[in-house]
């Protein structure tokens, strides 16, 4: 099945919903790792929107990317509660451990504010991170 067919299938699966654009974009992002310019055009056509409208939405939200990044991703919380628990002191070591191989993404709050520093890999959460635990988490990502 071509990419265009798959996108058409995703759009069709959500078209009955009220305000279907975000659910569609989530699924496209999950399946292709990004919402490409081509995908934006196809979604716009299917929903009778302009490409600019769809691109405006894609570029607004942090969760959608225009290009896929195949590297494994570790999301590290650097919001206030994790700052208070010392996440900033771990950043240098985390950057070294990640190198070019792992994508280290900053997020603001995973809701684990009493047991930070916290991180997320996929749907798996990690709490009470120190330098050793975070480094090994990144290295095994």
């Amino acid at each position: 099945m071509s990419e265009a067919d798959r996108i058409a299938e995703i759009v069709a699966a959500h078209a009955h919903r009220e305000g279907p654009l975000l659910p569609i974009l989530h699924e496209v992002q999950a399946r292709f790792g990004c919402v490409s310019a081509k995908a934006e055009a196809e979604i716009a056509m299917a929903l009778n929107l302009s490409r600019a409208e769809v691109h405006g939405v894609v570029s607004f939200y942090h969760d959608f990317a225009s290009e896929a990044d195949p590297r494994p991703c570790v999301e590290l919380c650097r919001a206030e509660a994790c700052q208070a628990r010392g996440v900033e002191a771990l950043i240098d070591a985390a950057d070294v451990a990640a190198g070019e191989r792992v994508r280290l993404k900053t997020v603001y709050c995973l809701g684990l504010c009493s047991v930070g520093p916290a991180a997320r890999t996929g749907d798996v959460l990690h709490a009470r991170l120190d330098k050793e635990r975070l480094t090994s988490l990144i290295e095994s990502a």
Partner: peptide
């Protein structure tokens, strides 16, 4: 959409 750092009651 509980985005505030330091909050987790909704979750």
């Amino acid at each position: 959409d509980e985005g505030d750092s330091g909050t987790f009651a909704d979750r």
